[in-house]
Write a protein that binds this DNA or RNA. Structure first.
Lengths: 167, 167
DNA sequence: GAATTACGTCAGCGAGTTTGACATAAAAAT
DNA sequence: ATTTTTATGTCAAACTCGCTGACGTAATTC
């Protein structure tokens, strides 16, 4: 980094600068957040898409293909290439649903759980360090803001958030 | 969403649950954060990579190719296809450096700035809303945590952060 | 019995990344 | 002045990962 200075050094409008910093912080944080798992994944011939599938199946054992599609927001064709690979290679198990036999309930095998743990360990440590260094109040603020960045309440509701909404 | 409940409902270990929520919040927020610009980009036949280039060139006018590579952390071959496209189509201008004539200093054309504004408007609004709803203290906490998620001080130093580090 | 739902699959396309090798021009080092 | 390093660009091949569109099957619902 050499002669780099953000444009508008005289802060003609503080708000814009503040918001742009938000945009950039998201970029840098996400870039670093995914970098190390990506390295592990290449050892298995997998990519980031595999990570996401493994992560969410580990998180919600017995989840359906539909709900996974709803979370990832990709097409079933895109998912199926990745998911099929994980099933064929023994990382994920599909069980026919009991109530609705059309469903294929997904869960990790031991092999899958092992990879999930290795991948997630890094990201957990990253958050543990950031949370510890920032302190509890900062963490509460972080959660408030990042939940506010999401588009849908459906996603926000996955987290126990206490907005002023709760009467 | 149907019968989805995170594994470990009895919170056998609060920490793990807290950290996993962090991981997931990052995923959902980033997914939504990029979704709408992606739609605009397809109108121009561009992708997310073009957005990043346009954004950072707009942010740091006169930046070099090297520093852009340093920020994006991709290979020059990857960058060059995207960057070359943006130059050929008149969104970005390359000027030979004055001090170092090997450098190609990058800046947006009017056309480029116009697209940059359209793309960024959405993300700025998203942050404006999230920041406003969360309040100043929460924003300060958000910044602390998300800066802590980054790997390098070099990136943290792009932001005016007041950690206890500043003796 | 017909319509809908959950899931899968074949085929093709394109963006975006990678590695590796090579080329040119300018600057820096000797 | 020559050599080495730096900044940038380019050719080629491969792979991930998303997309659209079409079609198929089994199970459920109407």
């Amino acid at each position: 980094m050499d002669t780099l200075a953000p444009k508008g050094g005289e802060t003609p409008f503080l708000k814009d600068e503040e918001l742009r910093q938000g945009i950039e912080m998201m970029f840098y944080a996400y870039r670093d957040f995914t970098a190390e798992p990506d390295v592990i994944l290449t050892r298995f011939g997998f990519g980031r898409a595999h990570h996401r599938v493994i992560y969410f199946v580990g998180r919600y054992p017995g989840m359906t293909v539909s709900s996974l599609l709803g979370i990832l927001q990709i097409t079933k064709q895109s998912l199926n290439r990745v998911l099929g690979q994980l099933v064929r290679e023994g990382f994920i198990l599909q069980k026919t649903g009991v109530e609705d036999r059309r469903q294929r309930l997904l869960e990790l095998t031991d092999k899958g759980r092992s990879l999930e743990m290795e991948l997630t360990a890094n990201q957990r440590e990253r958050f543990a360090r950031a949370y510890r260094d920032a302190g509890d109040d900062a963490v509460a603020g972080f959660r408030k803001v990042i939940l506010g960045l999401m588009t849908s309440d459906e996603d926000r509701d996955r987290f126990d958030y206490d907005d002023d909404a709760g009467g």
